[in-house]
């Protein structure tokens, strides 16, 4: 983890209504970042917004050192971030947190993304593809318009299967993405599932993993303060490894990626 007080924005792309990809060149962050880690972004130097905002590292180009963050405008911070232009500066801390545990060579892997939850999974897919692993990729969204990364994902996934589902049936299957996962787990021996998306989706993913006895890792979100483990704001309730003791753990430090079976789902979201 390092502090980068002034990183120049190289690109700001609007990918869909309210969805943006913002990029900057930082070979140092590109070298340090692992899939699932995040950057804590100070959007403006003044007091508006006051706090930093955490964003998963979405894509890394190791050749150019370009890093991308993917975000949806959901409040004041992201609204201000969307106004940033090429050449503007961002103040970043990172990469922070614990990322995904990468699979062993040859393991069967599936990725499940709900909406903007594709953000960290895309970087994971880049890394897996680079290591010759071709995971099944399941993309879920409310509408076709929110599946704006489907073709890039297909390109990256190579020969692996990419299936999509939308709530309104405007693209792919008309079903929750978790139905695609249920079908996949029933038909194929999957060894590790990586998921990111809305709380309701993650809860279903976790119960499917339990049902099929499959390991999984999920990336969580919580309102965050410091980002470095000091303020204890961004906690989620977790079980210990034996599934016994329950305690709060920090999304910024012990997460944002957790084992699906550790999360106390009834208290989540």
């Amino acid at each position: 983890m390092r502090y980068f007080p002034a990183v120049e924005i190289s690109r700001q792309e609007k990918l869909a209504a309210d969805c943006y990809r913002i990029s900057f060149i930082s070979p140092e962050i590109a070298g340090l970042a692992r899939p699932g880690q995040f950057l804590h972004v100070r959007i403006n130097p003044g007091l508006e917004p006051l706090l930093r905002r955490p964003f998963s590292v979405h894509a890394v180009n190791q050749r150019t050192g370009e890093i991308a963050l993917l975000y949806r405008v959901v409040g004041r911070g992201t609204r201000l971030l969307a106004q940033k232009k090429k050449g503007d500066l961002l103040d970043l801390i990172g990469p922070l947190g614990r990322g995904f545990t990468l699979p062993a060579a040859g393991q069967n892997v599936a990725l499940v993304a709900g909406g903007i939850g594709i953000a960290p999974l895309y970087f994971l897919l880049q890394t897996l593809a680079g290591a010759g692993n071709s995971p099944d990729v399941l993309l879920g969204a409310r509408t076709a318009g929110e599946l704006f990364l489907a073709s890039e994902v297909r390109e990256l996934a190579g020969k692996a299967a990419v299936l999509a589902a939308t709530d309104d049936g405007s693209y792919g299957h008309r079903a929750p993405v978790t139905e695609l996962l249920a079908k996949l787990l029933a038909e194929k021996k999957v060894e590790i599932v990586y998921a990111c998306g809305p709380a309701a989706m993650l809860k279903v993913v976790a119960s499917l993993l339990e049902q099929y006895g499959v390991d999984g890792e999920i990336s969580l979100e919580e309102r965050m303060g410091c980002g470095v483990g000091a303020c204890l704001s961004c906690v989620c309730k977790m079980r210990d490894k034996k599934g016994q003791d329950v305690s709060y753990r920090r999304v910024c430090l012990e997460g944002p990626v957790f084992k699906a079976r550790e999360v106390v789902w009834q208290d989540f979201g």
Binding site: P49, L50, L51, R76, G77, E222, R223, M224, G225, C231, L232, S233, C234, V235, C236, Y248, D267
Partner: peptide
């Protein structure tokens, strides 16, 4: 400690 959310701007 308390139940989350624990912070709001």
């Amino acid at each position: 400690g308390n139940s989350p959310p624990r912070i709001v701007e």
